[in-house]
């Protein structure tokens, strides 16, 4: 028996919008820790890891660990039927091949339930080791989104370099080149507007902008984003989900052929 009641149902709607274009099918894992997901895109270049901790739910009942295979496009279709202010409850029974999403309007005058078919997904779970990163950049998520979008109109890849000067995003394409440098800036009104660069060692890595642009669909989940870089490691782009957990995207770098 599984019953998870999320008062801020819009979070789940936003999570689906952030993941459904990257991953088609995924197993949602439910345990005492929380509701989680780990899935790779079809080309095994990018990975999404989601955690919504059990404490973040108003009611969290998960009698035993359960994995539910869902088609994210279909799940998104169902969650789009929930209002932004609705409370969402996820219900499942042991051995059942369906999951139920229940939506309650804030004043309880409308209650809907949508039953979705589950699927068997043979997913590869990767072990992601804890790593020391050479540089960690925290910046406003809207700024990161803007940079990725702007650069993708010029080139297909971005070189992200962190030095003591700041973080530089560079691209080149048929029409020319572009460089955007963001310097550390802590003198802002709100902490989420700050750009904070922690650098242990300078680092420079190349990534496909197509994937980074896809990651920025998580922007509505958090006002700031953390980009962790280490040479010879996939970049981690993390959006914290207030009081609940995170959505992290991993992307393998491109190397000189």
């Amino acid at each position: 028996m599984l019953e998870l009641r999320l008062v801020q149902g819009s979070l789940l709607k936003k999570v689906l919008e952030a993941t459904k274009d990257l991953v088609t099918d995924a197993n949602f894992d439910c345990s005492a820790t929380g509701f989680s997901l780990q899935a790779m895109d079809s080309s095994h270049v990018a990975l999404v890891a989601l955690l919504l901790r059990s404490e973040g739910f108003e009611h969290y009942r998960c009698d035993r660990n359960i994995s539910m295979g869902m088609n994210l496009n279909n799940m998104s279709k169902m969650l789009k039927c929930a209002g932004n202010d609705d409370i969402i409850t996820i219900k499942g029974d042991d051995g059942s091949d369906t999951v139920t999403f229940m939506f309650e309007s804030p004043n309880q005058d409308k209650i809907s339930d949508f039953e979705m078919k589950l699927m068997d997904i043979d997913s590869e779970h990767l072990g992601i080791p804890e790593a020391e990163y050479h540089a960690i950049v925290k910046m406003p998520s809207s700024e990161f989104q803007r940079i990725c979008k702007d650069l993708s109109s010029i080139g297909d890849t971005v070189v992200i370099s962190v030095t003591k000067e700041g973080v530089k995003f560079s691209t080149r394409g048929d029409i020319g080149t572009a460089n955007i440098v963001c310097r550390q800036n802590k003198t802002v009104d709100k902490p989420e507007e700050a750009t904070i660069i922690e650098m242990n060692e300078p680092v420079s890595l190349t990534f496909a902008l197509r994937y980074l642009n896809s990651f920025t669909k998580a922007t509505p989940l958090s006002e700031s984003v953390t980009v962790s870089l280490s040479s010879e490691l996939p970049v981690v782009v993390e959006y914290k989900i207030a009081d609940m957990g995170y959505i992290r995207f991993y992307l393998a770098p491109k190397i000189e052929d």
Binding site: S43, P129, A208, Y250, A252
Partner: peptide, 14 residues
């Protein structure tokens, strides 16, 4: 030219 690496080059199976 740049070659796209795969995640399996970095992360092992659990």
């Amino acid at each position: 030219t740049c070659k796209q690496q795969k995640l399996s080059a970095f992360f092992g199976c659990k």
